[in-house]
């Protein structure tokens, strides 16, 4: 196992290359999923009727 990770003495180079590729894929997938979810959140907010605004009269009366 240790021999495998040592990559014949080239561990630093090999794993920096493979690690960067893995990190890129993970980050890109997460970014795309977040972007899609956020786009839907904004769509939903735009579609739903705005929550009833608190009446100015009542807030004034409460004070």
């Amino acid at each position: 196992m240790g021999e495998f990770f040592a990559m014949g003495g080239y561990a630093w180079y090999v794993w920096m290359a493979y690690g960067a590729a893995a990190l890129t894929i993970v980050v890109e997938i997460a970014a795309v999923r977040t972007r899609r979810r956020r786009a839907f959140d904004e769509l939903r907010m735009a579609a739903e009727p705005a929550p009833a605004a608190p009446s100015l009269m009542r807030t004034r009366g409460a004070r």
Partner: peptide, 9 residues
């Protein structure tokens, strides 16, 4: 040696 394995990425 094993450095060439970077080719696969």
């Amino acid at each position: 040696g094993d450095a060439y394995r970077i080719i696969f990425i």
